[in-house]
Computed example of a mutant assay.
Amino acid sequence: MAVIDQIAQPAAPRRAKGPRRSPGRPPWMGTPSPTMQALKVAAIAMIAVVMLYPFLYVILFSFADAGSVTSGQLIPTSFSSAAYESIFAGGVVTRSLLVTAGITIIGTLLSLLFTSTLAYGLTRTRDVPYAKSAMVLVLCTMFFGAGIIPNYLLIKQLGLLDSYWALILPGLISAFNMIVMRNFFMELPSELLESARIDGASEFRIFGSIVLPLSKAVLAVIALFYAVGYWNSFFNALLYINDTTKWPIQLVLNQYVVQGNAMSDLQAPDRPAPPAQTVQMAIVVVATVPILIVYPFAQRFFTKGVLTGAIKG
């Protein structure tokens, strides 16, 4: 009888070969085949090479010696640090780096302070008079601008020409960043803020002791946006700064690399001049690497602060 029962039972359907996936899940969520995995790895590796090669090219040729540059090699075979020694001994690049670092640090801190306070004030539409009207004015700045000439005349009338404040004050508050921060503040649990008010905490105490600690994620993102903007800004310096000793690094990069001004002004007079191409590449590296170092530190705050403030009422 056992043999008859086994014969009567239908044969189990054979599993089709191919990517394994759970029932009801779309095909792209299943486990890909080895061939598909190999194709994905090859595609990602090709994209990485295409994106990293220009940066590696700049770094390698910034350390190349004169022989590798004049021979037209695709990848230099002999290296030298003469370009970096020359531009740092010349003083122009070192001074411009200090100027840019100061503008970036001070500008980012001030921008965070004013943006966060404005964003928090605009969340209190019931308590702050004309908060909705102020919000409309902020939104208008995203679509309408005064233009270069009115801005220049305003900076001139304020006496800020050839001043570092001319590189900070015009971009002190970004309307987009303020809206992002305001929306984040509005998502914070209102019960927590109301309980603090019932306990007698002032708005400044609530803002400094509750709102800001719960907003580390958005503060890190906005701080990175502002820092990158201040570091990479050169157009304001081109308009408002006539004193070459106050030029930021990006304006030096624009004048001597993009515009092709004489490279002898950047180099130490008592040193043999390295090839102009290596000096240009060295300035590009010096202007790019410092802001890249900030990203790993900001990424730590991104991942740490994503779930901060997820309190259920």
Rank of each mutant, 00 (worst) to 15 (best):
I249A: 01
Y230R: 05
A217K: 03
I222M: 11
F225H: 03
Y226K: 04
N261S: 13
W231Y: 10
V228H: 00
V221N: 00
Q255L: 12
Q259V: 11
I222L: 09
L219R: 01
P213L: 01
E194F: 09
V218H: 00
A220W: 06
I210R: 05
T244S: 14
A237T: 04
D199P: 11
L253C: 04
I241W: 03
V221Q: 00
P213S: 10
N242W: 01
A201N: 10
P248E: 12
A223T: 12
N232I: 07
L224C: 06
G260H: 04
N236M: 13
P213I: 08
A223H: 10
E194Q: 13
F234A: 08
L253H: 08
G200W: 08
E203P: 04
Q250H: 11
V252F: 09
F225A: 06
G229P: 12
N254H: 13
F207Q: 00
G200V: 04
I198H: 09
N261P: 06
L253Q: 09
L214F: 03
V258F: 07
R197S: 13
W231G: 01
L224T: 06
A220L: 01
D243Q: 02
T244C: 04
V257E: 02
V218T: 04
Q259C: 02
F235A: 13
L212W: 03
K246A: 10
Q250E: 14
L239E: 09
T244R: 15
T244G: 07
F225V: 08
V221M: 14
F207W: 00
V258N: 11
L239S: 12
Q255A: 14
I222C: 10
Y226E: 05
N254Q: 14
F204T: 13
F204W: 15
I241Q: 04
L238V: 07
A227L: 12
F235L: 14
L239A: 02
A217N: 15
A223Y: 07
T244Y: 03
N236K: 09
I206L: 12
V211N: 00
V211W: 07
W231E: 11
A227Y: 03
N236W: 09
I241F: 01
A196W: 09
L253Y: 10
A220P: 13
R197T: 12
Q259R: 15
Y230N: 08
L238F: 04
A196M: 13
Y240T: 00
Y230E: 05
Y240H: 07
A217F: 08
F234Q: 01
V257G: 03
N242K: 11
E194C: 05
E203M: 11
W247C: 07
F234D: 10
L214S: 11
L253K: 12
I206V: 15
L238E: 12
V211C: 03
V221F: 11
K246L: 15
S195G: 05
A220R: 03
K246I: 06
A217P: 04
A223V: 12
F234L: 08
I222F: 03
V252E: 07
S202H: 02
Y230V: 11
L214K: 01
F234M: 10
I249N: 06
V218S: 13
Q259E: 14
Y230I: 12
G208M: 13
R197Y: 10
L251P: 11
I198W: 02
P248M: 05
L224H: 02
